[in-house]
């Protein structure tokens, strides 16, 4: 596995980033709460940089481009269902993972009909029944499910949905860290910048290490989906679970470093943290994700990067899909 993304993919990420920033950046999420038309601006920006031309199922490079797009969308809190659109079906229905007990889809209103699947692969058609009633995560909506007697969902779709959502959270976490660094450098109390207090420096350092680990795990999951010798579900679940754990903490700490400003919507961190909640909690919250991960490991084993037989293969492979 390559531990860094190839340069052309990083380049693509930069163009996605500037397109979203030009469209309004995190402000779009803020605006979309009052008027959903702002969400269209995000969609338009993403479509101009080629979101609709990427099919992550094609090969590892395409998946990596999709992942980079999701990461950047997460960093900008883009108010649209990027993972769902990227994994849409041939009839253009976006795809979402749901829990059949309490099905909720983030930005469900972006399409009249969705193709939905549970983590165990049962396939449904989903349509919006109501907003969640909570004004706290404005776009997550309850959906009604109709069971389709199709084949079970393709394992690749399920795994990609988990991995891409982990990338999206990774971007959110990286942005939260950036905001924390910027704020604690600029904000002065007791005659010095907050970043001059060691407890803050240490915490920020811990957060950045956590995110580095998450980034590697996300890339590994993606690589495993295309090149692994075994089923990559445990890897995809591990990436998602780690994203839920790490990014939740980064958001909390970054808000804490902002003081009361972290709770005021005039500051980006407040908007980012709220809009990240659906991705942090869907299709299952951390505890339940961990349950799924345990079950998947029991059933299929967990090869991991450093499994003995795997280790030299990983070292020899350059990151190209075989």
């Amino acid at each position: 596995m390559r531990t860094t993304m190839p340069e052309p993919i990083l380049d693509f990420g930069r163009s996605v980033d500037s397109a979203l920033q030009r469209a309004g950046g995190i402000g779009l999420a803020r605006d979309a709460e009052a008027d959903y038309a702002a969400a269209d601006l995000a969609l338009k920006a993403l479509s101009q940089v080629g979101m609709y031309d990427i099919d992550p199922r094609d090969d590892l490079d395409s998946a990596a481009a999709a992942a980079e797009l999701c990461r950047v969308a997460g960093a900008q809190a883009a108010p649209c269902p990027v993972v769902g659109i990227i994994l849409r079906d041939p009839a253009d229905k976006p795809f979402a993972l749901v829990s059949d007990e309490c099905p909720i889809i983030d930005h469900a209103a972006a399409a009249p009909l969705w193709r939905a699947a549970t983590l165990s692969g049962d396939v449904y058609e989903a349509r919006v029944v109501q907003r969640t009633g909570s004004n706290l995560s404005p776009f997550a909506m309850k959906v009604g499910l109709t069971r389709l007697d199709d084949e079970p969902a393709s394992p690749q779709d399920v795994q990609l949905a988990l991995a891409l959502s982990a990338f999206q959270l990774l971007g959110t976490g990286q942005q939260a860290l950036e905001l924390a660094i910027k704020h604690t450098r600029e904000r002065e109390q007791f005659g010095r910048p907050l970043s001059g207090f060691q407890v803050i420096r240490h915490s920020v350092a811990d957060l950045s290490v956590g995110l580095e680990g998450l980034a590697l795990l996300c890339r590994f999951a993606l690589w495993q989906i295309f090149t692994g010798s075994s089923d990559a579900l445990p890897d995809a679940l591990a990436a998602k679970h780690e994203a839920q754990r790490v990014v939740r903490n980064v958001l909390r700490m970054s808000q804490q470093f902002h003081g009361a400003a972290g709770l005021a919507d005039e500051y980006d961190i407040s908007v980012l943290a709220r809009h990240a909640q659906p991705a942090l909690r869907l299709p299952t919250d951390m505890t339940t994700t961990l349950g799924h991960l345990r079950a998947a490991i029991e059933e299929r084993g967990f090869e991991g990067l450093y499994a003995p037989e795997h280790a030299h293969r990983a070292a020899l492979t350059t990151g190209e899909a075989r």
Binding site: C102, S134, D285, T287
Partner: peptide
């Protein structure tokens, strides 16, 4: 308070997300 709310939400999962008081 933060730890309990967080643990509760994590256990409640999606049910802790819907139908809130405002």
């Amino acid at each position: 308070l933060q730890d309990i709310s967080d643990a509760g939400l994590s256990l409640a999962g999606l049910d802790g997300h819907v139908d809130g008081t405002s």
